[in-house]
Amino acid sequence: MPGRATPLATGRALGRIRSLCLLGLLAVALVLTGCIADAGPEPTVASGPGNVTASNSPGIPSTSAPLETTQSSNKAPVYWIGRSNSNVFLYREFRDVPEQENPVTRALRAMMSDKPLDPDFFTPWQNPKKLATSISGKNVITVDVSEDAFNSNLDADMAGRAIQQLVYTATAAGASSGLIDSGQQIQVMVLVDGHTDYLAFNHVRLGTLMSRTAGMVAPVWIIDPQEGVEVADGSVKITGRSTLPGGKLRWQILRAEDNGDKTPFLTGETTAAAEAAQSGVFTLALTLTPGNYELRVSQVDTSGNQQDLYVDTRSFSVR
């Protein structure tokens, strides 16, 4: 075998730490971009389609992932929708974004206007004419977006996932930038042109506080390397997360040939961390010769069917 993988015990923290002067202005509310409409009296937590789960698809685990913590990276955490086998989940990428706006607005604007790096991911959101955010002292993020952001034809299930995509991205950006206490529950209020009670994508009634819903994030996702990156030498560090702490994972490296074929290059198994501080994290250290590669990671099927469950893939190159 042309190489050997050695799983490491810990993962690399991702994200970024932002030191913003706006933190000094936090009192009852922290206004981050301009002036947006007040959310009004504190509403109840949503229990409708905005908080959908994946329970309508047999065999899908109730997946969850910890809220992002304050990070040293200057990239924005953005969630996308992606397919794995016959299932649909949320996946995260860290993106370079302009710094004209606050971290939450930047991440949401990327989610609504950019394309994912990974071609397996997509977003149903449209680039809005208006987008602003604020954070209250009660760990509530208010998002005020124009109606044109919802110009996509979705069914009810995908509409619920799109709203959760927004909730995950907004809360990730708020927590990873240090603007919100990640030790407390973070909720999101979505206004459309300053008003509540909008029917998003013709299926999800907005105007109530929403939080992250379990069952949305992918059971397995590769964090690094990101799609399409070039590694400067043959030492490649792979990190990712599984929503099954202590669970077995199968990984494979495929080498892309000049004719477009992909041939097996390395393969192995590893175990996701079970410790609370690194729950679900997996890390691999590989030595690869120059070339183009595809990484595949999946959960090991404990039923004995030898099926690759919840596969995530990533293409990268070594130069």
Rank of each mutant, 00 (worst) to 15 (best):
P2F: 02
C21R: 12
L22G: 09
L23D: 14
G34T: 12
A46M: 07
G59V: 09
S72L: 14
S72F: 12
I81S: 01
R83D: 09
R83P: 01
N87W: 11
N87M: 11
R95G: 01
V97K: 01
E99Q: 10
N102Q: 14
P103M: 10
V104N: 03
L108T: 04
M112K: 01
D114N: 13
K115C: 00
D118Y: 08
K130Q: 12
T133R: 03
G137R: 11
T142C: 09
T142S: 13
A162S: 13
Q165E: 15
A170D: 05
T171K: 00
A172T: 02
G178Y: 08
Q185A: 06
M189A: 06
V192T: 15
G194M: 07
T196S: 15
L199H: 05
H203W: 12
V204K: 06
M216Q: 11
M216N: 05
P219R: 07
V220R: 02
W221F: 12
I222R: 00
I223K: 04
T243F: 03
K248D: 03
L249M: 12
R255E: 13
L266Q: 14
G268F: 12
E269R: 13
T270H: 03
T271A: 04
T271Q: 12
A274R: 11
G280R: 04
T283G: 01
A285P: 00
Y293P: 11
Q299D: 00
Q299S: 03
V300R: 08
Q306H: 15
D308R: 15
R314Y: 04
F316C: 05
V318R: 03
